[in-house]
Nucleic acid binder design. Structure first.
Ligand code: FES
Ligand code: FES
Lengths: 141, 141
DNA sequence: TATAAACCTGACTAAAATAGTCAAGTATCA
DNA sequence: TGATACTTGACTATTTTAGTCAGGTTTATA
């Protein structure tokens, strides 16, 4: 199981953005340089974040992005959801009654993976962008 | 983030195996049929499980595999470890002092992913094969 | 003692997912 | 009017996954 770059970058970029405390728009170019993420890739990511109303864009010179909500209200879940970084542990379709083995009952381990998925998602539901920014400031001292 | 088939199958096969309570060797052919997993693929998986001493093989006709330890002592961690299903959340090399951005300090989110990795691994450390077999029997009633 | 069941090994490959790049815009400020 | 920065969509190389395939070796049992 591994985390993809898309998810990692999305969070990384938003932490960078959040540190500027929502005063001035932050350009993707700056984030790209500071965090070492390809600008073109960031654009893809922010396009999704904007559509899910996590950030707002400001066009033109001196433009960039600002948070669309309080950092406290943006949870990791929301970010991952926006960029389609989803936790997938079961093989079967969840709605379907069929198991991953094609049989009419769920497989021996279905329940386990379902628990695992919940376990992981709980982590994402708890953490907010604010927590991350704070963590970072503390460690820096 | 998603779980790969290899990891899922390894656990599925071992639960199947463990249900026979270690009396007779269970052939991969049987597991293949019952769980709907390719025999050739199972062989790859069991080769690894054997090398890590999770199962023992019995060659020849009527042969198969048996558990090499008590089901209680086999944790998910051990299984995943054996088949190289590893949880990987950070981008950087752990030993290296460099961050994933190539800079000399760890990136803004390194700590977060490290926490996540621990969180997930905790789940795997707790669950034993015995738990899984029990769960299954209970649900069946 | 022949034979079939089952383990054992390594190489190979098709398909999917990932991690981007590239090109061609549009909006806005100075 | 130029520069900066967002916007969009298509494209692609690389890597990973999820197997397959081909050839073994071992051993119970008929
Ligand atoms: S994972 Fe849902 S039935 Fe196997
Ligand atoms: S994940 Fe370790 S430095 Fe970024």
């Amino acid at each position: 199981m591994k985390l993809t770059s898309k998810g990692r970058y999305a969070v990384m970029a938003l932490v960078d953005l959040a540190r500027f405390d929502n005063i001035n728009p932050v350009s993707l170019r700056d984030i790209s340089l500071r965090q070492g993420i390809s600008l073109d890739y960031l654009e893809q990511i922010f396009s999704k974040l904007r559509k899910k109303e996590i950030v707002q864009s400001v066009r033109g010179t001196q433009g960039g992005y600002i948070l669309n909500k309080k950092a406290k209200e943006i949870k990791l879940t929301n970010i991952f959801d926006a960029v389609d970084e989803k936790v997938k542990t079961v093989q079967c379709k969840k709605e379907s009654k069929k198991g991953c083995n094609g049989k009419s009952t769920k497989c021996l381990t279905h329940n386990l993976w379902d628990e695992l998925e919940t376990h992981i998602n709980n982590f994402f539901k708890e953490k907010s962008l604010e927590d991350l920014v704070k963590d970072n400031i503390e460690r820096r001292v």
